[in-house]
Design a binder for these strands. Structure first.
Lengths: 107, 107
DNA sequence: CGTGTAAGGAATTCTGACACG
DNA sequence: CGTGTAAGGAATTCTGACACG
């Protein structure tokens, strides 16, 4: 039945539909890939394939650029956000371990 | 933010990716459209565009054909299923109207 | 730096048709 | 009936480069 997350992240769209959905030029989309802001998949013959998540990311990127933020900054912001997510996951696991041990220790 | 239903029904994929995701030949996919089992959108230049829903439908169609069901039968089955859905909606509305009037009438 | 554009080639998609069974 | 295939043309996509500011 395909769950929604995998659906969001599945790389199924060519650049043409992405261009239509985002309103960005192909040039811009390719450039943002070059600057490592998005990571489309590639077909065996080299065609870019995008996901709905990529489209959401592109919208955010376009917004920031319109605000005068440079691609370098945007890339750093993205990394920060991902690190934060990673940290939250670690904290969650840590918390679960702690409560596990606490339960054990409270004889 | 794009909700998941519209995401499932959005016509965003070319026949190539559909072929990969379903394992069906282009010929088969085009033929099922000809037999009115699926309804891909068309770009201004005539290219077919499919949704994730279309992919799910294609899988079901392939299954039935493998079971020896003819496309005509499959089309009728699809219609039946849709009629049933329509009826259910009507029943729901009827039920709501009834409870509405009942409330009003029970002075 | 971010983006437009023309250039040339390669890959994709389309339709209508013939084939087979 | 359902599907494969070769044919020819049209649309899509790609890269590397030059341009501007």
């Amino acid at each position: 039945m395909v769950d929604n997350q995998s659906l969001r992240d599945k790389k199924v769209m060519t650049i043409k539909i992405v261009k239509e959905l985002t309103g960005l030029s192909e040039r811009k989309i390719r450039y943002y890939e070059e600057r490592k802001l998005i990571f489309p998949a590639r077909t065996s013959t080299g065609n870019r394939m995008f996901s709905f998540s990529d489209i959401e990311k592109l919208m955010e990127i376009a917004e920031k650029l319109a605000d005068g933020v440079q691609t370098d900054e945007i890339r750093k912001d993205i990394k920060k956000r991902e690190n934060k997510k990673q940290d939250q996951k670690k904290e969650m696991i840590k918390g679960q371990l702690n409560s596990h041990f606490n339960r054990k220790l409270s004889h």
